[in-house]
Simulated scan of single mutants.
Amino acid sequence: MKVAYLGPAGSFTHNVAVKAFPDFDLRAFGNITDVIKSYEEGLVDFAIVPVENSIEGSVHETFDYLFHQADIQAVAEIIQPIKQQLMATTRDKQIDKIFSHPQAIAQGKKYIKTNYPQAKLEITASTAYAARFIAENPQENFAAIAPEAAAKEYNLQIIAKDIQEIDENFTRFWLLGHQSPVICLPKIDKKVSLALTLPDNLPGALYKALSVFAWRGIDLTKIESRPLKTVLGEYFFIIDFENHNEELVTFALEELTTIGINYKILGNYDVFEL
């Protein structure tokens, strides 16, 4: 089996792929859109993409592509603890620039501001790209924020450990595919993710949409709005809810249709934890 992930090697997504699918053929791609397209084009059997971080929120590139452009569903979710390390080619190097993914920079910004206030922050497509870039430029006064696996992958020295501002830092990753393979990780939940679009002529449409879950005792775990990219002020809504009773969920979805609310299923999946 072939699995696409957001690379290069040493990224958090790569770590998820290695831990969940140690015997699969792992293929790295440069950005989230290319990861998803690789699955759409039949280059791989599955694709792993980040969807949400507990500190920085949703990964908009993932949700927007799945809603607007793809007809793919998540078949599994894997939750990974996130620990950010500051690394360089040598421990005693002066640091003039720090490279990383925007979410990693945001998670370590307090540490950087306190300890390297003069350093410029540079954005990269992933944390692992940042690590690889500074490894390829050892003569420069560069550092990267990346996972420990990236330091091992690119022979870098960790100069500050666990610089994320909040210890309870987790990222959700979705496995996209037709059906979930066997995943030998602890299973902790079962959920459904929907994207809702609301009719203009239905007063209280969002309230009515959420009520079909509330009165059935179906617990919502996420709600978020994203622009429809049509006109200003129009949105679609992403909701996640627990799926502990398939029959109740089926009735809730039928009621959404009955009251005129359109939805797209983004995933119906078991949740696993690293």
Rank of each mutant, 00 (worst) to 15 (best):
residue 18 V to Y: 14
residue 10 G to I: 03
residue 76 A to G: 13
residue 47 A to E: 13
residue 16 V to W: 01
residue 51 V to R: 13
residue 23 D to Y: 13
residue 23 D to H: 11
residue 20 A to C: 08
residue 61 E to C: 15
residue 3 V to S: 05
residue 16 V to D: 00
residue 7 G to T: 02
residue 14 H to C: 02
residue 52 E to F: 09
residue 82 I to K: 05
residue 29 F to A: 09
residue 55 I to S: 09
residue 15 N to Q: 13
residue 73 Q to M: 08
residue 60 H to W: 12
residue 38 S to N: 07
residue 11 S to L: 06
residue 40 E to W: 00
residue 44 V to M: 05
residue 21 F to M: 02
residue 64 D to M: 13
residue 55 I to F: 11
residue 37 K to G: 12
residue 26 L to Q: 07
residue 24 F to P: 02
residue 80 Q to G: 08
residue 36 I to Y: 01
residue 71 D to C: 08
residue 51 V to M: 06
residue 23 D to G: 09
residue 63 F to D: 00
residue 8 P to E: 07
residue 61 E to F: 13
residue 47 A to T: 09
residue 61 E to T: 15
residue 21 F to G: 00
residue 78 I to K: 02
residue 73 Q to C: 06
residue 11 S to R: 00
residue 10 G to S: 04
residue 31 N to I: 02
residue 25 D to K: 11
residue 20 A to T: 04
residue 23 D to Q: 10
residue 70 A to W: 00
residue 3 V to D: 03
residue 2 K to T: 03
residue 74 A to Q: 04
residue 57 G to P: 05
residue 30 G to L: 12
residue 34 D to V: 10
residue 30 G to I: 11
residue 78 I to N: 01
residue 56 E to F: 12
residue 3 V to G: 05
residue 55 I to P: 07
residue 69 Q to N: 14
residue 19 K to T: 09
residue 35 V to S: 05
residue 70 A to R: 01
residue 76 A to N: 01
residue 74 A to N: 04
residue 54 S to F: 08
residue 65 Y to E: 07
residue 52 E to N: 10
residue 60 H to Q: 07
residue 54 S to K: 06
residue 13 T to Y: 01
residue 9 A to R: 07
residue 73 Q to T: 15
residue 49 V to M: 07
residue 78 I to P: 01
residue 37 K to V: 13
residue 2 K to R: 14
residue 43 L to N: 13
residue 30 G to S: 11
residue 21 F to W: 10
residue 47 A to L: 12
residue 23 D to R: 12
residue 44 V to C: 05
residue 68 H to I: 08
residue 58 S to C: 11
residue 66 L to N: 00
residue 26 L to W: 14
residue 49 V to W: 04
residue 31 N to M: 02
residue 53 N to Y: 15
residue 82 I to E: 00
residue 65 Y to T: 12
residue 19 K to V: 11
residue 53 N to W: 13
residue 45 D to V: 06
residue 20 A to R: 03
residue 41 E to K: 15
residue 44 V to S: 04
residue 23 D to M: 11
residue 16 V to F: 02
residue 4 A to K: 09
residue 45 D to Q: 15
residue 16 V to K: 04
residue 59 V to I: 12
residue 56 E to L: 13
